[in-house]
Amino acid sequence: MSVTLEAESTLTDRYQTTVPETVRRALRLGKRDKIHYTIRTSGEVVLTRVDAAEADDPVLGQFLDFLARDIASHPERLQAIDVAFVQRLQSLTGGIEVDLDTPLSADDE
């Protein structure tokens, strides 16, 4: 007889949730791991772990881990972004529309 585990979590105002510990253990999820949702026509949602081979660039992951460790180790180094810098960035990028769902061309990959 198979054992069924159940867990629930609550959505925040920003539609975020914490993956319950029982689910994290069952899927062997760690920090920064990716999860995949399969939505069936019945409305059932299946949650699976994305294999490392399918995950993002490992170099980027290592860089982001480095940043997270550095920020945790040296929070005094964090600085607010200068308003003039933000305005300069907006002047350089204003009016540029980007569709993040559009696939990259072969030249852009």
Rank of each mutant, 00 (worst) to 15 (best):
T38F: 05
I39R: 11
A68Q: 12
I71H: 03
V19S: 10
A52P: 06
Q62S: 12
K31W: 03
L5H: 15
G30Q: 13
A84W: 01
L5E: 15
L78G: 03
R24Y: 02
A84N: 05
D51L: 07
S73F: 00
A7L: 05
V98A: 04
L11N: 10
D70E: 14
L92K: 14
F85T: 07
D101S: 14
L5K: 15
V98Q: 02
A106T: 12
P58F: 10
E109M: 06
E54P: 03
L5M: 12
S9W: 05
H74D: 01
L29C: 09
A53K: 14
D13S: 15
D107F: 01
M1R: 15
D65P: 01
D13K: 14
L104S: 06
T4W: 09
H36C: 13
P103W: 03
Q62C: 03
D57L: 00
G43K: 04
S91C: 07
T22K: 14
A80C: 00
S105H: 05
A80R: 11
R40E: 12
L29A: 05
T10P: 05
T10K: 15
S2D: 12
E109S: 06
E54T: 08
D70N: 10
E44I: 02
L64K: 07
A68W: 00
V50I: 12
L64I: 04
I35D: 07
V45R: 07
V23L: 11
Y37M: 11
D51P: 09
I81P: 00
E97A: 10
P75H: 01
R24T: 04
E21A: 12
H36T: 11
Q90V: 04
T93K: 11
